[in-house]
């Protein structure tokens, strides 16, 4: 009788700066029978540091290059359909998430043309407005896997780096593994698992976080508290909307929410 092979289990860790550390606190919690790292405020701090370090290089890459890197991530995602399915993510969701990722990848080198442009000022000036990434975005992600992809991809495609508080930990860490095996520079996406109520306030009050996406905050009081804390350094805040329909056309809003418009003037004359 052939011996049944014993499965090798995965350890679900955090994703910070392109690496998979355990929580510095040493804490874990049980999710569907797996021990998952329970991120602490110091993990959040480390993730912000990693995001800040990675962000200028990512924003400085050509838009074409960012698009290519995101497309590569979609390729990796497609290859891991089974893994997500095994975690209970509906196949249709995985497919939609892959397609969404591809859709956003294509925006990398087009958004500036749609969202910026030349301004016809009344004077001898060249005047151009162009969108730029806001910087480091703290994201409280929704539990839906399609939702997770739908909040992460638009934030990073324009050159931001994100610190994500996962809504559903196992698919989120698996997505981290997808990203780690694509060409995305370490630190552009950082994923923390644990309690949003514990971690998110540290992101909301962190001076070096530029914006907050509260889409996945289910607790109304927490959302208000986070928005209030974000006022301290005037972070851009994307508030939780009424139950998002992740299958719908997302429009540009999730990208433009984390963009700054820079307008450059220069005289024209010889």
């Amino acid at each position: 009788m052939p011996e049944q092979r014993l499965a090798v289990r995965k350890t679900y860790k955090l994703y910070i700066g392109g690496k998979f550390p355990r929580s510095e606190s040493g804490r874990t919690y049980l999710v569907d029978g797996s021990n998952v790292a329970l991120a602490s405020r110091k993990d959040a701090r480390d993730a912000v540091l990693a995001a800040r370090k990675a962000q200028p290089g990512w924003a400085g890459a050509t838009a074409y290059n960012r698009g290519q890197v995101l497309y590569r991530a979609a390729e990796m995602l497609e290859g891991r359909r089974a893994e997500f399915a095994a975690l209970g993510v509906p196949e249709a969701d995985v497919d939609a998430a892959t397609d969404r990722w591809v859709w956003y990848a294509g925006w990398a080198d087009k958004l500036a043309q749609v969202h910026g442009g030349a301004n016809p000022v009344a004077g001898p000036y060249f005047n151009l407005s162009a969108p730029e990434p806001t910087g480091v975005v703290g994201v409280v992600a929704p539990a839906s896997f399609l939702g997770l992809v739908s909040v992460v991809a638009p934030a990073i495609v324009t050159g931001n780096a994100v610190v994500v508080v996962a809504g559903d930990p196992l698919p989120a860490v698996t997505l981290a593994e997808v990203l780690a095996t694509s060409d995305l520079p370490g630190g552009v996406v950082n994923i923390l698992t644990g309690s949003p109520a514990e971690i998110a306030p540290w992101l909301a009050s962190h001076d070096d976080v530029n914006a907050l996406d509260l889409t996945g905050v289910a607790d109304g009081e927490l959302a208000v508290a986070l928005e209030q804390a974000a006022a301290g350094t005037l972070k851009r805040v994307l508030r939780p909307g009424p139950g998002a329909d992740w299958a719908a056309d997302p429009g540009l809003g999730r990208m433009t929410a984390f963009l700054e418009t820079k307008t450059v003037w220069h005289p024209k004359g010889f």
């Binding site: 004077g123 000036y125 005289p267 024209k268 004359g269």
Partner: peptide, 8 residues
């Protein structure tokens, strides 16, 4: 000399 500035 920046023309626009000088003229202004």
């Amino acid at each position: 000399v920046d023309r626009v500035g000088a003229e202004q």
